[in-house]
């Protein structure tokens, strides 16, 4: 869990997003639609983006889970977080953790990161404020930086 080993007992029906929020107090992962549509609850499981409202906590047993709280290292914002700040890529901020984790999944997956690739890659994340433009710019910036410094 964000780089540390975590053992916990959960009820089988507990969804991962509620385990994160209610049991671990990791409230950076938000619940938007609760129907696998909006992407606000996106996290990484073994480096792949998933919607944590549609995964049981028990299914994460033995995996490596990363939430928005695990992105900054040693007091330094992750390149994606900094790029969102630099580009004013958020307004209300509710979708932002999910956007950043979805973007991290895209970058981790590799492949091209043109504007079109990013827009298509964000098809599972809804933002009601920004019109997406600055979000796409921020992800392009971070992807470029991460490629040149090879840090994920």
């Amino acid at each position: 869990m964000n780089g540390a080993r975590l053992e916990a007992e959960v009820e089988p029906r507990q969804l991962l997003v509620y385990f994160l929020r209610d049991n671990l107090n990791l409230t950076g992962t938000t619940v938007g639609c609760d129907t696998t549509s909006c992407g606000a609850c996106t996290i990484l499981v073994d480096g792949k983006s998933v919607k944590s409202c549609t995964m049981l906590a028990v299914q994460a047993d033995g995996t490596e889970v990363t939430t928005i709280e695990g992105m900054a290292k040693d007091g330094e914002l992750h390149p994606l977080q900094r790029a969102f700040h630099d580009n004013h890529a958020l307004q209300c901020g509710y979708c932002t953790p999910g956007m950043i984790m979805a973007a991290a999944g895209l970058i981790q997956r590799g492949g091209d990161m043109s504007e079109d690739d990013i827009r298509l890659g964000l098809e599972g994340n809804l933002c009601r404020c920004t019109g997406y433009h600055n979000i796409v710019k921020a992800i392009q910036q971070a992807a470029g930086e991460m490629k040149s410094s090879a840090t994920v």
Binding site: T36, S49, V50, K51, E123, G124, N125
Partner: peptide, 9 residues
């Protein structure tokens, strides 16, 4: 199908 997150699961 769906979106990248859905396709990952």
């Amino acid at each position: 199908v769906g979106d990248p997150q859905v396709r990952n699961r």
